[in-house]
Design a protein around this nucleic acid. Structure first.
Length: 244
DNA sequence: AGTCATGTTGACGA
DNA sequence: CTCGTCAACATGAC
């Protein structure tokens, strides 16, 4: 269900709970929930595909994996893996993995890599690509959460098409100008994705993801589980140049 | 009904 | 030790 923008969308929906008192937490997940006991929810934010609930001295991350979902004041038939209870409300999470951390998110996460944060640092991303990922295929690197935090398969496929870069291109062979363009387009498309979320148009408005034909050339798209990520990748070999 | 998926982790063996 | 492979995940859309 989630890529970074999906999680940010959920975080926005939950803002009304900020400042409220959490009476208790429940769920079959293994995380120790004893500290969440009549405590104020200080803030809700995100890091990539993690939803973050901040309390005074600690915080909890919630990750949806592939099947995760969330309901506000509604329950599904199956038990929740995690739930936050308020005096009159509850937030239920299904198939969601949670983890509790002491301290602040900034102690653990570098917001400069998060494609949806104002702190997203395009120059840092370019340097990291050149220094640590130069021999790798760009289609693989885009899915790496340590450098493109929040990118999922839809974003990966769409930004490669929009940048006209073949997914199997090797990072060091791609002209710097093209790499910069790719990074910029990734941040831009992440914002677009978030807007499309509100109208449920992400898949409908995707250009190549889960499509069959390139809209420019009217020719069949390549559809393959490429690289190490082995995720279904859609590309047009006429539009997207292979640098290798 | 079978298949496939917006994701990650941990087990296992080479 | 490190890498590839595979399953698992109270799932859900087509």
């Amino acid at each position: 269900m989630p890529e970074g923008p999906t999680i940010k969308f959920l975080a926005q929906k939950l803002q009304k709970f900020v400042g409220e008192k959490v009476t208790e937490a429940s769920g079959y997940g293994e995380m120790d929930k004893s500290k969440i006991d009549n405590i104020k929810l200080e803030n809700i934010e995100t890091f990539g595909k993690n939803l973050i609930f901040l309390f005074k001295d600690f915080f909890v991350t919630a990750h949806f994996g592939l099947f995760g979902s969330m309901k506000i004041n509604e329950r599904k038939k199956v038990n929740a893996s995690f739930a936050l209870h308020f005096t009159n409300d509850e937030i239920n999470f299904y198939v969601t993995r949670t983890k509790l951390y002491e301290g602040k998110p900034q102690d653990y996460f570098n917001f400069k890599t998060d494609i949806l944060k104002p702190e997203f640092d395009q120059k840092l991303i370019l340097e990291t690509l050149q220094n640590k990922f130069s021999k790798k295929m760009i289609g693989d690197v885009l899915m790496d959460q340590s450098i493109f935090t929040g990118v999922g398969n839809i974003i990966r496929v769409e930004v490669l098409y929009r940048s006209k870069i073949h997914p199997e291109s090797i990072v060091e062979k791609i002209p710097v100008k093209k790499l910069k363009e790719l990074i910029k387009i990734t941040a831009y498309y992440a914002e677009e994705f978030l807007i499309l979320m509100t109208n449920d148009c992400v898949k409908k408005d995707a250009i190549v993801y889960a499509k069959k034909v390139c809209p420019i050339h009217k020719t069949d798209l390549e559809i393959e589980k490429m690289g190490k990520v082995k995720r279904t990748t859609y590309w047009c070999k006429k539009c997207q140049k292979l640098y290798n």
